[in-house]
């Protein structure tokens, strides 16, 4: 198999087994390798690389500007959030203040109500006491009148039985004393 290969190769390459080692084809390949490389380099440099770099740069700029926009938006959002927080805090403070005021107000109202109630009660009590007092006075006066009347009647009856003036006086005094005593018992 290899022998056939050797024989076959020997047909077209007299000096060497591999066509690659045939020196007569070296010269032009060296020249054209280098030439082709620089042709391709020139073509890529003038036609391809600038296009690619332009696209990549454009994308880079777009991404950068997008990022900047996003950053700005983020900052705005942050500011808005801070503002909202501030407003919230203010509202909360106001609410607390209002609640506090309401609490104080209600306390004051309650105090006032209690005050007026107790005043009224006191007034009513004093009125009642005064009424009781007047009623008592009236009762006492009436009682006194009744007692005097009784005493007068009794006295008249005694006088009718002819009692001496001194005895009469003495009896009046006794009656009065008795009324007084009665009065003390009433009190």
């Amino acid at each position: 198999m290899i022998a056939t290969a050797v024989a076959a190769t020997a047909e077209h390459t007299a000096s060497s087994g591999m066509p690659q080692f045939e020196p007569s084809v070296f010269g032009h390949q060296i020249f054209w390798s280098i030439a082709s490389f620089f042709i391709l380099l020139y073509l890529l440099k003038t036609h391809v690389l600038p296009a690619i770099e332009k696209v990549l740069d454009a994308r880079g700029n777009k991404i950068r500007s997008d990022l900047e926009n996003a950053e700005q938006s983020r900052r705005l959002a942050e500011k808005a959030a801070i503002d909202t927080q501030k407003q919230l805090n203010a509202a909360r403070r106001m609410a607390e203040q209002t609640i506090e005021e309401a609490r104080l107000e209600s306390a004051r109202y309650r105090e006032m109500a209690r005050e007026s109630l107790s005043q009224e009660l006191a007034k009513k009590k004093s009125v009642a006491l005064a009424e009781i007092e007047t009623a008592k006075q009236k009762a006492m006066t009436e009682l006194h009148h009744v007692a005097v009347d009784i005493a007068m009647l009794a006295t008249e009856k005694l006088i009718a039985k002819n009692m001496t003036k001194t005895e009469t006086n003495k009896m009046v005094q006794e009656a009065i004393a008795a009324i007084q005593e009665h009065k003390g018992q009433v009190h």
Partner: peptide, 8 residues
């Protein structure tokens, strides 16, 4: 191997 092949 190929070089030897050429020398044969």
């Amino acid at each position: 191997a190929f070089i030897i092949m050429g020398k044969a």
